[in-house]
């Protein structure tokens, strides 16, 4: 189901074809095909347990950290298969950043959190690091709040600040894609609004895929919306159309709150 037919000027960044995913014997995703455009925000919505988070995690193969999984079909980034195209998962994760459901800053200073990624990739001189850290914190709209206390522990920040720090940390390695797994589910409305504003700014030069259970949020922040149900893609279209004139009855039932 490759629906978007409007004139799209941005190239396709991620492309999924007939993809299926299973944990051991348990099939979680099946027959998925969709395209994600560069410099756009794509929201994935659907009821709990529909496999939307699992799908997101396939793009940086982070689920391989904790369990044995099996992915079939094609998942391409810039035309290269991220599972079989000879891409090392560590390199992949550098290009595809991720922000998790609950803010997970390292128990280190604010500065060290942001500098963590660049250090891994061999940036060690102080001036470059300082520049990268400031830049990332500015992009994450956090610089003004923390510039005087970069040496303080990140775990002492508020939840919203922690989440923006995690975004800054992901941005510091200059990824091409940013995956966000319900990034506001642990935050209050004000912190949520800040993150949503941020998403709007970040898409200028980043491909963003966001999983959310909050349909208003999907409507506010995304350009495209994909609706998942029971591990299958029901419908994907421009967000505007999904929320006004969905073509599948089930999508309409879900977004009007009749189930899920």
């Amino acid at each position: 189901m490759l629906i978007p037919t409007v004139p799209e000027t941005k190239p396709i960044k991620l492309s999924v074809r007939n993809m299926a995913f299973s944990y051991g014997e348990k099939k979680v995703l099946d027959g998925l095909s969709l395209d994600i455009h560069a410099e756009r925000v794509t929201a994935i919505i659907g009821p709990s347990g529909c496999g939307k988070s699992t799908f997101l995690k396939c793009f940086n193969r982070i689920h391989e950290v904790s369990s044995a999984v099996n992915v079939s079909g094609d998942m391409l980034m810039d035309g290269v298969d991220i599972y079989r195209g000879g891409i090392d998962e560590v390199d992949l994760r550098r290009r595809v950043g991720m922000v998790f459901q609950k803010p997970n800053p390292f128990p280190k200073s604010i500065y060290e959190n942001v500098a963590f990624g660049p250090r891994l990739f061999g940036v060690s001189d102080r001036t470059s690091l300082d520049g990268i850290v400031e830049d990332a914190l500015r992009k994450a709209a956090l610089w003004d709040e923390v510039k005087d206390r970069l040496k303080e522990s990140a775990t002492g920040m508020s939840g919203g600040q922690q989440q923006r720090l995690c975004i800054a940390r992901a941005l510091a390695v200059n990824p091409e894609v940013l995956l966000m797994d319900e990034p506001c589910s642990a935050l209050d409305p004000i912190a949520t609004a800040k993150i949503e504003d941020l998403i709007g700014e970040l898409k200028e030069n980043l491909t963003i895929v966001i999983v959310t259970h909050n349909m208003q949020q999907a409507a506010r922040v995304s350009d495209y919306t994909a609706f998942f149900w029971l591990g299958k893609l029901v419908e994907m279209d421009l967000t505007e159309r999904i929320f006004t004139t969905p073509r599948v009855q089930m999508t309409e039932d879900y977004i009007t709150g009749r189930f899920g």
Binding site: N60, R93, R94, F106, G117, L120, R169
Partner: peptide, 17 residues
């Protein structure tokens, strides 16, 4: 919390890093 481990690896750390 396992989120620390995941967070580090999502940034491109190897297991050992």
């Amino acid at each position: 919390p396992s989120s620390l481990d995941e967070g580090a690896q999502a940034l491109g750390s190897s297991r050992w890093q």
